[in-house]
Design a binder for these strands. Sequence first.
DNA 1: GTGTTTTAATACTCTTCTATCTTAATTATC
DNA 2: GATAATTAAGATAGAAGAGTATTAAAACAC
Lengths: 140, 140
Amino acid sequence: MLSNATVYGIRAVIYIAAKKDRKYVPISEISEKLKISFHFLTKILQKLTQRNILISNRGPQGGIAFNRPPDKIYIAELVDAIEGADLFDRCVLGLPGCGVETPCPMHDQWTIVKVQIKSQFEKTTVSELAKKVSERNERL
Amino acid sequence: MLSNATVYGIRAVIYIAAKKDRKYVPISEISEKLKISFHFLTKILQKLTQRNILISNRGPQGGIAFNRPPDKIYIAELVDAIEGADLFDRCVLGLPGCGVETPCPMHDQWTIVKVQIKSQFEKTTVSELAKKVSERNERL
DNA sequence: GTGTTTTAATACTCTTCTATCTTAATTATC
DNA sequence: GATAATTAAGATAGAAGAGTATTAAAACAC
Ligand code: FES
Ligand code: FES
């Protein structure tokens, strides 16, 4: 469903939001704690800084931080930035285009699911998820 | 979401169900009509014959056919046979295992979606979809 | 039985995703 | 300024998925 790169990005962002003590969090710390390859994670997070979701700072005490409060960052944005935008608009049977004009036999029922996933991802914020990690101790 | 191989398999099976005139349908015909590589499709359909969902016959007038009426074949079976069974049981964040004992921060909302997809795939039959193709002329 | 049609099985290539490695550029601290 | 910490960027390698090619085996027709 989501690529590895995308879930790494989401998990990393939740991790940053779950610890409120320091402003800049080094990528090395995230990669160690979440057991994600440092260099791979670096490239993924670069996409998020390029989209101005995160902001980065090099040098000692550097790292990455939010460029806007995490309760204004939606999961759908992260997916879009890392995976590409049209993920939730594709036909479930892989046919080109998806819409009521040219439906495939699964279109009707798939649309229901698709809308639900999309709206869930669009309304879920990073801070909401981070809260579950820090308060209810859920795993990352 | 679903791999190419899986959607090819689903589309091929719907194609066979949509034409009721002949018993055995050669894979070459399906591959031409659906514009899927013949050899690739052959490999995919082999998985379905091995699971006794389809039955195959070599030689002239041969091809593949249903081993049981298509209104008793559910999409979920096809996905399982081609893709592997645990597709709908995986954690959306890729964490090992997924359940209420060890939830990830997205578990609650993801479970809702997952159950819905799963039940849709489990209750949808091939003949149901084939009917939309033959009667409502929907694309494959 | 010979030849043709068709699936079965295997091996191979190509591309994309995942991950690693190396080098550079930037910043803070001393 | 020198040093260390840290991200940026690009090149490379490995793994997996997608697709191709080849050969074998079976069944039917004549
Ligand atoms: S056309 Fe296939 S899901 Fe919409
Ligand atoms: S644990 Fe992540 S979706 Fe269930």
